[in-house]
Design a protein around this nucleic acid. Structure first.
Lengths: 261, 261
DNA sequence: TTAAAACATCTTGCATACAAGTACGCATTT
DNA sequence: AAATGCGTACTTGTATGCAAGATGTTTTAA
């Protein structure tokens, strides 16, 4: 079991929320490797809480596709999967390219100051290198575009998809960093330029290609570390987990006739 | 408190899953009106379970934006909100228009049979009218396109957004049905034609406009029933719910230094 | 009469015990 | 030696009791 560490500012959060963030980060950092088994009891003991907040966190992670909960059998970290990855890529590319187009259409020069401020900060971070701050600023850049497209809350949806892409990138970086961060900033600059000019097609296309850069890395990773793409031995089959019914009967006080809408 | 009824086939589901579906359907049907207060104890009593599965369902609903959980204060059904609606529209329109474009690009005639079969069924349902079956077939049509775009699992994301649009439409229909279902099928036919022809622009644009049809109805609804768009009196402020921290301290067995990546 | 303080009654958050089901090792049997 | 049945140690699902906080009412004092 990987060692879990709590960030200092999580001490004011509800236990379930804190557990969610810790476990999620551990999965992203590959502290919990794809296919690894998770135990509610063990996690509760490690984090010093009861199973209740742990279950809250795990159910949230399960809904986001990060883990698979197999009733009465166990819980495993979702193996890397090309289908999941492609869907996440599609969601992020669609939403953000449409947002860039919309920003170019309705915002125009209004977004110029904010985007160029972000670009300036990105260049400073490039010079005085700090990977954590770079990705923070990268996220901010993408959020600015969503905000100027009039749909800031879509960032939440993007983030859910982004996790799968980030985990793949993270696993790939462990093979050795070959990412050209200068290229990232240059693409950001081109997208900014398109939005400022009001060039809808260039903004949309630029953003789409910008996000598509992650795609070819998957094949390389699968070749280098195939074990991350497959479930481990302990659990016979994972497929049937999502369709396994259980006999149960919820009684109901209401005397209305059965049948939905 | 609205009467809750359980569909017959939910008896084999886990209690939490069953509770989720029942409550969600009640919110969609406006059995629980926007702004109404929910009580975990009352719901548990009504559904004949304990609070645990109810909490599981409510947390899921809260994450989907259907309800607001205010710690130590209460839980309310999310009021209708234009921002939420616009974000949901944007997500669905972006994903499905991109999917239609991709289907036209890579699938071509391969999807023709499935789409035209669905169209035929839609026309049969139009003649022998059955609203429930119509929406089922409508969903199937949209899923076919996602599947032929190579991203079937994106339907889950679409559904999360679709709820907010469906709830708005549902509330609007209560004012009196003025929806032209023939128009819906005609637009489906046009989209099908574009995909079969491999006309990327027409597929994307057609789908976008098809989904955009819901937008103008919001203003009408807000004018007719403004109370559905605002929170009720009992709870002072809803805004601070999502940022309210609580004092808590999670201990941790690991002795590593604090601070995440 | 007005205002402030204490109380009763809700709410959700959390901890814990129990129930139901699965997987695996080991003894027994063939 | 191989196959079979059983028992133990897990797993997640559910029920319930308690703790902490917020709200609205009642009581008390000025």
């Amino acid at each position: 079991m990987a060692q879990l560490r709590l960030a200092s500012d999580t001490t004011t959060l509800p236990a379930g929320e804190a557990a969610y963030r810790v476990i999620r980060q551990a999965i992203l950092d590959l502290g919990f490797e794809p296919g690894a088994a998770l135990s509610e009891n063990a996690l509760a003991a490690q984090l010093g809480t009861s199973r209740t907040p742990i279950r809250e966190a795990l159910q949230r992670l399960a809904r986001e596709g990060l883990i698979f909960v197999l009733p009465q059998r166990g819980t495993i970290v979702a193996p890397l999967d090309f289908e999941t990855f492609r869907a996440a890529y599609f969601v992020r590319a669609s939403l953000e390219s449409c947002a860039a187009a919309e920003a170019a259409r309705i915002s125009g020069k209004a977004a110029q100051d904010e985007l160029e401020d972000s670009l300036a900060r990105q260049r400073v971070i490039l010079a005085d290198w700090d990977e954590g701050r770079f990705w923070d600023e990268n996220n901010r850049f993408h959020q600015i575009i969503l905000r100027h497209a009039g749909v800031p809350s879509v960032w939440q949806v993007v983030q859910d998809s982004k996790f799968h892409l980030d985990r793949m990138r993270r696993a790939h970086l462990d093979l050795g960093p070959d990412y050209r961060f200068e290229t990232v900033v240059a693409e950001h600059a081109a997208i900014t330029d398109a939005i400022v000019r009001g060039d809808v097609a260039a903004a949309s296309g630029g953003m789409h290609e910008h996000i598509a850069k992650v795609l070819p890395r998957v094949e390389l990773l699968k070749a280098a570390r195939p074990e991350l793409f497959e479930a481990e031995k302990p659990l016979t089959q994972i497929v049937d987990a999502e369709v396994t019914p259980r006999r149960r009967n919820l009684s109901n006080n209401a005397a209305g006739k059965p049948g939905g809408t």
